[in-house]
Computed example of a mutant assay.
Amino acid sequence: MGLPIARIELADEVQIRGCNAYSRLALPEQPTLFLEFHGSAAGTREQVETFAAISAEEGGGQVEWATRPEDRTKLWQARHDAYWAARALKPGTDLIATDVCVPISALAACVAETKQDIERLSLLAPIVGHVGDGNFHVMPLIDPADMEERKRVQEFLDRLVERALRMEGTCTGEHGVGQGKIGYLAEEHGLGVDVMIAIKKALDPLNILNPGKIFALP
């Protein structure tokens, strides 16, 4: 449709519940998109109206439009504080922040299947996402002393990556590989990882640059 959207962010109903409590909002507890439009007053109004019409055709809910700077700031600050809002949903637990990225055409299906896994495994795992580029984050809250829950979370993480790769996406959107996704990197790129390791060894023969990250070098 050629509709210029400056920002588009997703928060699922669990994350919205956390944002309402942490940021003192009163949003309906349902999956919600936060959007930002740039331009003149008339131009942005037309953009919002076009988006609202598309949303209505696709079964979307009510579109609320904030024009005052203080109202916009409050909403975006709530989105920026999503991590802290998620942690507050279950005090005393650890939060594992992970993400994947898929083509936008596969995004809705990927999120829907991820939600089904969360429910099946009885996890508390809010979802937020920079969905304009197909990237979304899941933040399972976990009791570190509960070994059975830790196993369920690991199963969830493995299935999340498998799903993203099956949908022609990537194992990480913006968090990077670090240590936790070394195995997933090999699954995604296969022998291409050997090429990456060769370059790493050529440029860093002593393995002193961020050792232990991205590649499991001996």
Rank of each mutant, 00 (worst) to 15 (best):
F51M: 10
L33H: 05
K90P: 00
A86Q: 01
Q47D: 12
G134A: 11
V63H: 08
D81Q: 11
D99W: 03
L89T: 06
A11M: 15
M196E: 03
A56M: 07
H130G: 12
L35V: 14
N207C: 11
E57D: 13
G183M: 11
I54C: 09
M139W: 04
A66I: 02
G212I: 10
P140M: 08
R152D: 07
E187H: 06
G212D: 09
L217E: 09
E168L: 12
F37W: 06
Q77G: 02
E49R: 05
Y22W: 13
A26S: 11
P218K: 15
E13Y: 01
V161G: 01
K201G: 06
L209Y: 07
V193K: 02
W84M: 10
L141D: 04
D94F: 13
C101R: 00
F34Q: 04
D71A: 14
I118L: 05
Y22F: 15
I96Y: 05
C101M: 10
Y83E: 09
D194Q: 12
L157A: 06
A112S: 10
A164K: 00
A109M: 08
K181A: 13
E36R: 07
P205F: 14
E36A: 15
T114G: 03
P91A: 14
P69Q: 13
D12N: 06
K74N: 08
D94W: 10
K200Y: 10
R72K: 15
R120K: 08
R45T: 12
E174T: 07
K201Y: 04
E174F: 11
E148P: 00
C101E: 05
R79C: 11
C101N: 02
R17W: 03
A66W: 09
K115L: 15
I182F: 08
D71N: 05
G60S: 09
G169N: 02
L209V: 14
G132T: 09
E46D: 10
A11E: 03
Q47A: 12
Y22R: 00
T50N: 02
T170W: 02
P140I: 08
H80Q: 13
L206Y: 04
V100I: 15
D81E: 15
N20S: 07
D146N: 15
D194S: 10
A78G: 04
E29A: 09
